[in-house]
Design a protein around this nucleic acid. Structure first.
Lengths: 155, 155
DNA sequence: CACGCTTATGTCGTGCACGATGCAAATATA
DNA sequence: TATATTTGCATCGTGCACGACATAAGCGTG
């Protein structure tokens, strides 16, 4: 009875996990032109939208932890994409700011979303399906992050 | 005009990437009871469905490469979950077989899908949405894997 | 049979993710 | 004003992912 639920084909998590990896791979050739990885691209998107933010603000937007973000930002600093400066008001806070090079990458990045969209949305996958997909995923994020916070709090 | 497409909120890839990580995290406490990780759980699901298969057959089902699978399987061998034996007909092929311990884990794993389902599908996320989600994701997998194979072939 | 090509698996280096832990600055509390 | 607690960031260790490359076994063709 329950047997069938252990089939790979019945799982919902597996397709998400696979699509996530496949999409990152689809981004790769485009991002290689800019010399960056997908997580680095995410950080840049946050900064292009809002420059000079704390490490914490970035992790909150990207739902990542500081122990992932810190080394990532250090690599990006070494690549001269961002600067890391400690705030003078609160010495604990590190402010991340775009360098000129990081700011300029935005121009190169502009056509990427459209290019990927063209690759993905074909006769097989419709726009409406993608919008519905995004909708459900965002609901899932809400459920999963709340659940996570609650379980952390209740320790 | 195109500016808005670089907003994190307009991206489809980001929610998939986030949900993938959050779901793996949601699996974690359940899988820790079995002493395994999520990718190891995926390998076991393949083997529970079809024991004694080649490394290649596993990578094809999980859409992973051998350079990810080989170390993963070695760790699982060290944990006494699987055996790795070279085929006698074709010395290149390595056959992966469940150990008794690996087979027995299936019983412990049976209730996991239902438990996760209960955590995720609440008043916020409906069953129909999840089924539709899975549907679209599988279509995406088709598009993305074909695209990948074609681009490899055309080199 | 020799030689080139393909196939199956593996190694290496790099970059995430993340739990556990550390540490110093800021803040709350006695 | 001491001391405890919280907060922000970082380090460490482990386990994926994956591109590039290595290697050995099998296969095809001359």
């Amino acid at each position: 009875m329950k047997e069938e639920k252990l089939l790979l084909s019945s799982q919902i998590c597996f397709p998400i996990y696979s699509v996530s990896r496949l999409l990152t791979k689809a981004y790769k050739p485009h991002l290689e032109d800019l010399g960056i990885t997908y997580p680095q691209y995410l950080v840049l998107m946050v900064l292009w939208e809002n420059d000079k933010v704390s490490v914490n603000q970035i992790t909150e937007k990207l739902l990542l932890n500081t122990n992932t973000m810190s080394p990532l930002l250090k690599r990006m600093e070494k690549m001269d994409l961002v600067n890391r400066v400690r705030s003078k008001e609160d010495e604990r806070i590190v402010i991340i700011a775009l360098t000129d090079k990081g700011r300029e990458l935005k121009t190169k990045a502009l056509p990427i979303p459209d290019r990927l969209f063209d690759e993905i949305v074909t006769d097989k996958v419709e726009i409406d399906d993608m919008l519905k997909l995004k909708d459900t995923l965002c609901q899932l994020i809400t459920v999963l992050t709340v659940k996570n916070e609650v379980s952390v709090r209740s320790e």
